[in-house]
Design a protein around this nucleic acid. Structure first.
Lengths: 115, 115
DNA sequence: ACAATAGGGGAATAATTTATCCCTATGCAA
DNA sequence: TTGCATAGGGATAAATTATTCCCCTATTGT
């Protein structure tokens, strides 16, 4: 991330949650980590459309935002495992609800999005 | 919006909801419209940090995604009113939950975000 | 005459986010 | 000996999103 020229808007709760969830793959990362995919390479395989680089960066941001923790094993080749923090777990109901809404309206959404 | 070079990922419900909510001011627009701020100029006053242009564009996208409707009155100066569609209203519980999570964790979020 | 109004759109530019490519290190297998 | 797997970082290019600035409409009030 570079130095920001336009200040963030952090007026209300919606801005705040937006800030930590904004990022192309963040929600999915949280989701897959919760499902037990802990290692970066596993996550990469789960989200093949994402570049390795950006996954790594977004994981770092999630960690900075205290939603996940990073555990490094001193082995070669390197091994790293991410887990949700307790704080991160409190986001799960929100993500679940979002996913349900999307699933429930899948057909309609596909139509209007690709219109 | 220009022609997209990188295809959208629309694999699951989370991608779909992400697509319609992604946009710097969209959630807030939905929220304020629901609170009864129907006219573009009202919304502009509610969200002074956003440029007029981008609000107008995001409103158009919300309309395209069938979350809001646009009603034009044949008067001068022009008068336009937006309202949530029934479909748009089904998003309110999701937005509410997001806002609540953000509010509840406001202090912590402010810390980690501006860290 | 002419500014003010309310909504919107085009074009150019700035800001931000992602993608691409290449590099590090080490033990194991072919 | 070469290649692979693993996790991540730097540099740079590309794509996407947002901002700025200016124009148009048509009527009302000064």
């Amino acid at each position: 991330m570079h130095e920001r020229k336009i200040p963030l808007n952090l007026n209300c709760g919606l801005d705040l949650i937006g800030e930590v969830l904004y990022g192309k793959w963040k929600i999915r990362l949280l989701w897959f980590i919760n499902e037990g995919n802990k290692r970066p390479s596993e996550l990469q395989r789960k989200i093949p459309d994402a570049s390795r680089r950006v996954l790594s960066m977004q994981l770092k941001e999630l960690e900075k935002h205290e939603l996940i923790t990073r555990k490094v094993y001193a082995v070669v080749p390197p091994k790293v495992e991410y887990s949700l923090t307790d704080f991160g777990k409190t986001l799960l109901p929100v993500i679940t609800l979002m996913g349900e809404w999307g699933d429930k309206n899948e057909e309609r959404l596909r139509n209007v999005i690709t219109k």
